[in-house]
Design a protein around this nucleic acid. Structure first.
Lengths: 334, 334
DNA sequence: CTGAAAGCGCTTACAG
DNA sequence: CTGAAAGCGCTTACAG
């Protein structure tokens, strides 16, 4: 039919004919069958998004942003959660790939898992969010992990704290490792003793680890937690152990969460631009899909900033936000 | 090909042939083209989920649960956010419908919007979550709004509070209206004065409304907030106005949020089974898709419970959770 | 039990 | 500028 041409804005259609066609379309409330279109090799106008946990404060914000910019381009998004399990993740990728999707946005559960190699060398465009793939090269969007950690730790050092312990959950993640590295770097520069990071996984593990730590003679005067879940876990545990945050021990966390303002004392944290991360990653993927880039891999690193509240020892009104320089490192890698 | 038959487990295939086919499938790592399947009238094995805001603590938990039970059945889910805008919602529904999806899970932005009538009478199965459609009948899964509100308000009354104000955001929503009705019912039964609910929309509106309320001679001694966003907004505002929650004024909220334990004092709230809501709704939709129900509309109402912490005036250890009776009202409506 | 044919609803060259 | 033909990759009857 000429219908196809009209719908797809083909140049060779008389205004007259086009008008008739459009009228008929309206009258019959005709909608093109998407599946048929895809079958002829058209784009599916859909992308996949796989995150570890949709209910996580950070990833839910990222997901919302991704959905928003996809919608603006007329794209629909498949959302899946891996529960930090590479097997589930791979299965979801497989399903999406064959549904099919035009591209996938991925927060890998394990950035060294073998299946990622196959994925990255496949034909479906991939953009990683937050955690880059370590064993292959793809487009990626992340944040300044190391610099954020240094921002946090150096702020604690300026307060005069000398026994700063680093606490980590999911310490196998590259992002967390980089934050730990940033912590170490700052401690060494300040010539401060740099104990190994404390790993907490479950609430019960956290409770025994922290109660031991605070019972020892190396009791810390400040804590740096490396992601939102470890920050929340530590705050919870400190309450249970009757250790008063901001008074008995200072705390700065990596990843700022909306409700940190509601806690007593309000929590100082490194702010990541979560929504922006989602927006930029989605836009990048869409551009890839449309073949707008020739360059092989684009690695985008977004700046972070320290949001100073009171858990670090500052008092209300002491300072505002120490906005980190808004430099965006955008490097092309071959 | 015989391939199709083998894959779809058709009875008439020799074990011999089937084995060969499967070997070939493995060797070529063949995957059936989903679009082609759909084109021949098969199910798409996908459902849509539209919520107002993916980043909301309540909806993100619901979304995670939906995704999980869909995955267990080999289904993929489209996730979209309406931003509480019926126009966006209708557009997303339209896209999903034609993609196509086998069914849609919906939290309507406006449960009286005209387009819902068309939707409900269409061929795509619909299950609403949390907010039933008011102008048409579909399957729905929700919670005991009125009873939850009474649980909250009666607890405050037992504490001896007499001037209890109800605070609402999004008061056009049926769920919120029912909670307000529950509040009124409890107040009337206790022969307490029952002021009109206070509506808060933005932080600034909340600030002026609350500062006026607490400056008046009808200053309340307790507050009942009708959803998580109004609870959070009120807590924030009270802090700004230097009104101490739990001391200057008691507070019980509808919808419990994980971080309420971290606030000082910890917040007492009506707990909704968010994850269960998502699981049950997804399962119901999948059953509908598979034609497992003949009955016209299934309305599921899940029980809520009061999680008692300290913002209501209780002290640590005063009481545990007053589990509401676990009765599930499951009614068939014609 | 297995193959050949027709068709799902579109799009992409190819003729007029 | 517009129509007829062929094909995308599957599945569903229909013959063998």
């Amino acid at each position: 039919m000429t219908v196809s041409r009209t719908i797809n804005g083909h140049p060779y259609v008389t205004g007259e004919t086009a008008k008739k066609v459009r009228a008929a379309i309206r009258r019959l409330s005709y909608r093109p069958n998407h599946a048929a279109r895809v079958l002829t090799g058209q784009l599916s106008r859909s992308i996949g998004l796989i995150v570890p946990d949709i209910a996580d404060t950070f990833f839910s914000v990222v997901s919302h942003a991704v959905q928003e910019t996809a919608r603006e381009s007329g794209y629909l998004v498949w959302l899946a959660a891996s529960d930090e399990d590479p097997t589930i993740e791979a299965a979801q990728v497989e399903m999406m790939t064959h549904h099919p999707v035009d591209g996938i946005l991925l927060v890998p559960a394990d950035s060294r898992n073998g299946y990622l190699k196959t994925l990255a060398s496949g034909t479906t465009p991939i953009v990683t969010i937050d955690r880059p793939i370590e064993i292959a090269t793809t487009d990626s969007v992340g944040v300044e992990n190391r610099r954020g950690a240094r921002l946090a730790v150096e702020h604690l050092i300026q307060h005069g704290y000398k026994k700063i312990t680093c606490i980590a959950a999911n310490s196998h993640l590259l992002t967390v490792k980089e934050r730990i590295a940033g912590y170490k770097e700052s401690m060494r520069r300040a010539k401060l003793p740099c104990p190994k990071e404390l790993r907490v996984s479950s609430p019960s593990a956290a409770k025994s680890a922290l109660s031991e730590l605070f019972g020892s003679r190396n009791r810390p005067d400040a804590l740096f937690t490396t992601n939102n879940s470890s920050t929340i876990l530590v705050i919870e545990t400190l309450q249970q152990l009757d250790i008063e945050m901001g008074k008995d021990v200072a705390l700065v966390g990596f990843d700022d969460v909306a409700f940190f303002t509601l806690i007593t004392p309000p929590v100082t944290a490194v702010r990541q631009p979560a929504a922006q991360l989602g927006n930029i990653a989605a836009r990048l993927l869409l551009q890839r899909i449309n073949g707008e880039f020739k360059a092989s891999s684009i690695r985008t690193v977004l700046p972070v900033s320290l949001t100073i509240r009171e858990s670090c020892g500052c008092k209300k009104g002491d300072a505002g936000t120490s906005k980190a320089s808004a430099q965006i490192a955008l490097a092309l890698i071959d």
